[in-house]
């Protein structure tokens, strides 16, 4: 399992995201920003907000949970892919190499977080890339940049100076369904 512990000094980076879901107001700016940034086709999504109502009238409570690919430490989508089109960068970002994807959809089925979709235009598989093209330029993912209530914090787990690292060092958090064994890397603050 991936942890937030620091590996040797100038270790490889390990990108992850902290989500402060309590601040989410369900404005879906992140969903729109992702669609625009990555030209995600109509009808499919790389990120979304899970809405859950709880309690009994009149003490109702609505909670919003931003969801997307968890860029797992041990991603089952990568394991099952028969061509190696699904792969993981050294910094943890899980990607699909479009040219090698045969569209067998095995990875869609094997992802416990339902984070992948069949792209109706290319007939290959798509998913959140953590905006790797932006990250490689030193920027943060589009959803992080756009969120008006600062729900999302993106950063390097191995960098003790990062905001993400400090949040995880001082706040309590959980990951979703760790029993999948995938080692999800979206940290939800409690």
């Amino acid at each position: 399992m991936a942890t937030k512990t620091l590996k040797s000094s100038k270790a490889i980076r390990r990108f992850a995201m902290v989500i402060d879901a309590k601040k989410c107001i369900n404005c879906k700016a992140c969903v729109v920003a992702c669609k625009a940034e990555n030209q995600v086709p109509l009808g499919v999504f790389r990120n979304w907000i899970d809405e859950e109502a709880s309690g009994e009238y009149p003490n109702l409570r609505m909670s919003f949970d931003p969801e997307q690919c968890h860029h797992c430490a041990d991603p089952s989508c990568v394991r099952v892919c028969p061509t190696g089109a699904s792969w993981q960068r050294k910094d943890g970002i899980v990607l699909v190499n479009d040219d090698d994807c045969i569209g067998c959809k095995y990875c869609i089925i094997a992802c416990p977080y339902n984070a992948r979709y069949h792209n109706p235009e290319t007939h290959t598989v798509g998913k959140c890339t953590f905006c790797s093209h932006r990250v490689d330029r030193g920027e943060v993912p589009a959803c992080v940049e756009t969120c008006p209530s600062k729900v999302r914090v993106f950063g390097d787990l191995h960098d003790p100076k990062s905001h993400l690292h400090q949040l995880l060092a001082t706040r309590r958090y959980e990951v979703k369904n760790p029993q999948t064994g995938n080692g999800p890397q979206l940290y939800y603050l409690l």
């Binding site: 892919c81 061509t83 089109a85 090698d100 994807c101 045969i102 569209g103 069949h118 598989v125």
Partner: peptide, 16 residues
């Protein structure tokens, strides 16, 4: 059933 039937040979060129 593949999204890309003409690429099926790729299975045999990447042994996973």
């Amino acid at each position: 059933d593949l999204g890309k039937p003409f690429r099926f040979w790729k299975i045999f060129f990447h042994f996973r």
